[in-house]
Design a protein around this nucleic acid. Structure first.
Lengths: 217, 217
DNA sequence: TAGATTGTTAATCGATTAACAATC
DNA sequence: TAGATTGTTAATCGATTAACAATC
């Protein structure tokens, strides 16, 4: 790795896309790829890709391009996939349960240690092998284990309170799936939110534009 | 509305956030807000907010600010919330089921008409009141009803095929929750993807940066 | 070698910020 | 009225694109 100084969020947000695209190329059996071809497959320019990678070092060979395997590996390293990150899930409602059962945490370098809930019916059980504990024991658990991230799938009304407890207990990041705009005062905690409704409303806007265009062409 | 000519995606992505923030202010009983205060609560500058709104018209009053109610209403209108959009869900696995049961479609101006699956066990049943039909009848259903959006929660391997069927059947947009990078050749169809792993990997990167900083301060 | 493609600097473009007259 | 805050244009900043020497 090279300069790294102040990588823009635009670049950071593209890194996972590169990683995903390279994984798909790898599965398809593609061994090498040029910045031009990679860009075309992702809707980016060759320049942009070379500029993005330039933030982190030199990963290609002149006249040849990039080896899919090793570029994927390098980007995975940059993303911290091999750092052994851990997380816990707060809230085992439909969404929490779905994520626990479906999401390939290990493919993203995360180990899911436990889930937490208040419902006595689920506390003590396991979901896809993951033990469900009572939220009362949250702080003790975090103190006893290294927990990097807390995933929030609690009801909106409980989001801020649970987020605060996670931050106070010392997690490094919060992955927020509630539709609540979490307030995070601590500069040492990273907040990443997945807002389904933001996504759907964006789609709604774009569709509405098309509808208008069809009316007044 | 005023000029509207070429609104950048950066602005479009902020519109749902404005809408969400204004909704929260409304619930808190806030009646008026200035661009400065709204910006502060969202981590934006006053200038940026005024510039964003300027794309669509004049919604405030000099010396006063914006009425929370009416600004929310206006932005909702821009987003197309009152257009009576409709959607169907493809795939009633854990994630599809969770979204059907939890997501407030109507709060975002969408009506969920039906879900589709191949599993004979669920076909014919209802999930949260939504009828589950067999995928074989997909095209007939879309031909018979107005379906604006197809939500994809099918297995990754089926994503492209189902996406193509939706596009061929004439939906205006696809809301993709699979981790597959859908290829959308049609310029008249809008593609919006929610990639959980992109989000987690971004978080992973940012956490890793903090970890490095703590090692070499 | 010749052709291809990178790494990297410079030029362009677009988005954000600043400024301020208009006006509530 | 005086103070506040908008709408809107101009200035700045940052991200994307272009260009090209280096080199595989």
């Amino acid at each position: 790795m090279k300069r790294n100084a102040k990588v823009s969020t635009a670049v950071i947000r593209r890194l996972p896309r590169y990683y995903r695209q390279l994984s798909e190329l790898q599965e398809t059996g593609v061994v090498r790829i040029s910045s031009g071809a990679l860009g075309k497959s992702m809707g980016l320019t060759a320049s942009q890709i070379r500029q993005d990678l330039f933030c982190f070092g030199e990963f290609g060979q002149q006249g040849y391009g990039y080896k899919v395997d090793s570029l994927k590996e390098e980007i995975g390293e940059i993303l911290g996939i091999s750092r052994g990150h851990t997380l816990i899930v707060l809230g085992t409602g439909n969404l929490g349960r779905a994520i626990i059962q479906n999401f390939r945490f290990s493919a993203n370098g995360f180990a899911l240690l436990a889930a937490f809930d208040v419902d006595p019916v689920v506390v003590g059980s396991r979901i896809a092998g993951v033990p469900v504990r009572h939220v009362n024991g949250l702080e003790d658990f975090i103190a006893a284990h290294r927990v990097d991230v807390g995933l929030l799938t609690v009801p909106m009304a409980a989001a801020q309170q649970m987020g605060d407890r996670l931050m106070d207990a010392g997690v490094k990041g919060i992955w927020n799936f509630t539709n609540y705009e979490l307030v995070c005062a601590r500069p040492d905690v990273v907040l990443e939110s997945v807002h389904f409704s933001d996504s759907l409303l964006t789609l709604s806007y774009l569709i509405s534009q098309r509808e208008d265009m069809e009316e007044n062409p």
